[in-house]
Design a protein around this nucleic acid. Structure first.
Lengths: 112, 112
DNA sequence: GGCTAGTACTTGGCCATACATAGTACTTTT
DNA sequence: AAAAGTACTATGTATGGCCAAGTACTAGCC
């Protein structure tokens, strides 16, 4: 057990929420998302993002279409399904509650 | 894959942070922590909390002493070690950054 | 003394996700 | 045709939260 590992654990689940949110704003493909996640300092690597997208797609939250690219192989552009939108709503609520709960606990100061 | 599961995943790591914070405020035993976590709507069950405490203790972040109880078996009262305090500081930073990163992403609205 | 109920803590197994790493497929450049 | 770059796929590992069953101690009761 070390700090780095806990930091990894903290990201679990939250990444899924962020990815759904990014896709909800319009069609994107994986590298776009990686750029945005990296810009927000939400460190993610390919090996994490691609399997996540596949999981979300298999769960019926996403769909994609192939789009030809001018510089390389075709890309999968993702969009949210209705089901995906509903899940995103629930996750937003869950995340807000989690932040709130954590704040309730960590804002208390030492008893004297 | 379902929403409940993601909600469980979101708690990963965060729970550790909350537990360290609670202990940092003074000696407590497991049931006290369960009460506070439940009050903050951070749902936790025994089977999660006890193993977590054991992990943290084995990692040298916590220590405990047995204290006799008037109504049942003796209790383990936990306190933070120096190492535990340092880890708590790092996790506080990590958590704040994570909240900030998530906010950066989820506060963006749909592109038009 | 033996029995039940309640409290506190322990243990083993299951599952899902983040990550590392290696690999496939397509396009462009030289 | 070979090399380089981009996009996506596949496999295996580690970890933490949870469930469920179990152990151990105390108190109250007959």
């Amino acid at each position: 057990m070390n700090v780095e590992n806990t930091q990894v654990q903290m990201r679990k689940g939250i990444l899924e929420y962020c990815v759904l949110h990014i896709i909800s704003r319009g069609e994107v493909y994986a590298s776009d998302m990686l750029d945005e996640l990296t810009a927000a300092k939400m460190i993610v690597v390919e090996g994490t993002l691609y399997p996540l997208l596949t999981r979300l797609k298999n769960a019926g939250l996403l769909e994609y279409k192939w789009v030809e690219s001018k510089s390389g192989p075709p890309r999968k552009y993702y969009t949210l399904t209705d089901k995906g939108s509903k899940v995103l709503e629930k996750l937003t609520k869950t995340w807000d509650e989690l932040v709130h709960s954590t704040q309730m606990i960590t804002s208390k100061s030492r008893a004297t």
